[in-house]
Design a protein around this nucleic acid. Sequence first.
DNA 1: TAGATTGTTAATCGATTAACAATC
DNA 2: TAGATTGTTAATCGATTAACAATC
Lengths: 213, 213
Amino acid sequence: MENKPISKAVVKRLPRYYRYLGELMQEGVERISSNELSERMQVTASQIRQDLNNFGGFGQQGYGYNVSYLHGEIGKILGLDRQHNLIVIGAGNLGQAIANYANFERSGFFVKGMFDINPRLIGMTIRGIEVYSIEDLEEYIQKNQIEIAALTLPKLKAEAMAERLVQYGIKAIWNFAHTDLSVSKKVVVENVHLSESLMRLSYRMDHPVKKKN
Amino acid sequence: MENKPISKAVVKRLPRYYRYLGELMQEGVERISSNELSERMQVTASQIRQDLNNFGGFGQQGYGYNVSYLHGEIGKILGLDRQHNLIVIGAGNLGQAIANYANFERSGFFVKGMFDINPRLIGMTIRGIEVYSIEDLEEYIQKNQIEIAALTLPKLKAEAMAERLVQYGIKAIWNFAHTDLSVSKKVVVENVHLSESLMRLSYRMDHPVKKKN
DNA sequence: TAGATTGTTAATCGATTAACAATC
DNA sequence: TAGATTGTTAATCGATTAACAATC
């Protein structure tokens, strides 16, 4: 459907456009110009137009962009128009938090099950989502068309588990472990390194950007 | 101690250097060249040297970098050599996950308390960390030298709470709510937008970068 | 039609990589 | 001293912003 490789910077911004357009829809706004949107989002109108035109002409000269249409198109680009089945590996607090967050479903992401080795957690249920034994992992992935695994395991166990997941045919790993996974490039790895985020916050506390207000 | 503004891209990479140097220390490695480190981290040696030289000459020609010294220096730059007191606003699963993650303490971040409006959660304790009533927030922040608030509240309640936190003298907000907070520029806001991370993962699943392996 | 606003090209800015002289 | 490797300058690459012609 499309071919030129889109820059990382653009892809990073797409979900934010999607979020703002969703809010505009809720407010009942039907159309918006790149200039108005740029004020809301605190980016330049030029950047918005450049970003969107990577994917084709979504706007109309003299009019702007149709909010609902643009929201839909960006949703399609992000793959939110289809269902993604997800499992969570590690049923600790973080794993439970992910399973518990129903809002992901609005974007097409469904947590189907959780996995743990701890017998005390196996059989437990969070928002209707059951915790299974790791032993059942391979069969479960294959029988339930699971594409994504959220990995909320201690650093030291993460790499081995990632390899197993890849072997079992998982397509993407949402990695919350504090380590860089080295798996086949065919598998997407998206890292959420919370401790690094906290360190950046700390840095910025000590090194203020001189600005008014 | 230092003045030139460091680029965002560099700051973003610092915690990763810190992590790799910590691992090298654990392995007992005493010194490393930018070239060896670049292979481990999958970045260019040139970038490593450029990045580090933003902060001064940490290496030695013909020798490389002393792992433990460099680890310590980057730690100082990130502010990990001092204690940061943290509270969590919202004692749901995600808030509990943060409170429960003892490893943050190794970097100097201590969760001192959690806050919620739900009476069923107030008084509860996670890893010795108590859940207090939101009513006690102002007093608690001021009496316990709290600098950072992790905000794990629903989107709609986040903005108002952020304003309260700023009023009460918080220095930084670690924002897990799916919204952009608009608070004084003097307060650091570090966003962790999990749903956006998941959308990027989805995009990348559909748009593979052509590469071998 | 006239006005508004996009799509797109050109100019600028910033970040990364390459190269090499300085020096341990 | 000779070899290794940094610190740093210069070259390249990519991303952002500005400008404006195309067009609804």
